[in-house]
């Protein structure tokens, strides 16, 4: 599969253009079903290269207050797996690589095989599973492979050397490097711990590396783009929606435009 997906083509293209890819995250159904699709499309118009759609979950232990709030809004407005499937279909039809980020229980409840089948049929190319350690991922890895879905795992600054090899060798599409120890949306000096982690991964893997957690503006995107293949931004987009209820799409487009300049400033 690798090399044939839009996601893999994206990283090749970015390498040729000497820049990092910009990966934008927004929760499905936030603030509601129809606006959610418009806002994600605005994010793409603003220059996001790949979209990571989050499935809002009741117990998001990896998420800070901003994304927690968004997930709660989306859940109150009735987001379901079936509706998320509709969003994936709409977004992947734009031609942009489309990924899903979800905690494990919703996949387990849906049924991993049915999930892989249904979502890949609508154009989903990869899944990020932030609370599924590699030791618990045996069934999922086999299912993802069978359905040509990239399985993307997170590595953290605390991940030891031996383990780093295990996790990264099971990643496809890209490796998600957590910039710091913490939850989403935390404001930290991203670059130092992230560059060390990316260096460690480079030594053992040829898979592209995208950095997430705490990247929220053009300057940070530019810093991270100097050493990573991709920059993942979530909370900054969610914040733009929360702070601009009258015209969230325009606000999100502007954030994307700024960030897309950042990932080109190496």
């Amino acid at each position: 599969m690798a090399g044939q997906s839009k996601l893999s083509e994206l990283f090749i293209k970015c390498k040729l253009e000497n820049r990092a890819a910009l990966i934008g995250y927004l929760p499905a159904g936030f603030p509601n079903q129809s606006d959610s699709i418009k806002i994600i499309k605005a994010m793409i118009e603003g220059g996001v290269d790949a979209v990571e759609i989050g499935f809002p979950y009741s117990d998001p232990v990896m998420d800070g207050p901003v994304i927690q709030e968004a997930a709660e809004v989306a859940r109150n407005n009735g987001i379901t797996m079936a509706k998320t499937l509709d969003i994936v279909k709409e977004i992947s039809a734009t031609g942009v690589p489309t990924l899903l980020m979800t905690y494990w229980n919703p996949i387990e409840k849906y049924g991993p095989e049915k999930f892989a089948h249904d979502f890949s049929a609508e154009g989903m190319e990869g899944v990020i599973t932030p609370d599924l350690p590699i030791e618990e991922a045996g069934v999922w890895l086999a299912t993802a492979k069978e359905n040509s879905i990239h399985s993307i795992f997170v590595v953290a600054p605390s991940t030891g050397d031996g383990r780093l090899k295990d996790v990264t060798s099971n990643c496809s599409g890209f490796i998600y490097a957590a910039s710091s120890m913490g939850v989403t949306g935390t404001q930290t000096n991203v670059a130092n711990t992230a560059s060390t982690l990316v260096e460690r991964v480079r030594k053992i893997s040829d898979t592209p590396i995208a950095v997430g957690l705490g990247v929220s503006n053009r300057a940070q995107a530019s810093e991270v783009a100097k050493f990573a293949d991709g920059v993942i931004v979530g909370s900054a987009f969610v914040k733009a929606v929360l702070q601009n209820p009258s015209d969230p799409a325009t606000a999100v487009r502007k954030v994307a435009e700024e960030l897309s300049l950042g990932v080109r400033e190496r």
Binding site: M62, P130, P133, E136, P157, T159, A178
Partner: peptide
Amino acid sequence: GRFVPEALIGA
């Protein structure tokens, strides 16, 4: 089992 963020595995 263990279904947690990677950052906690070491701990």
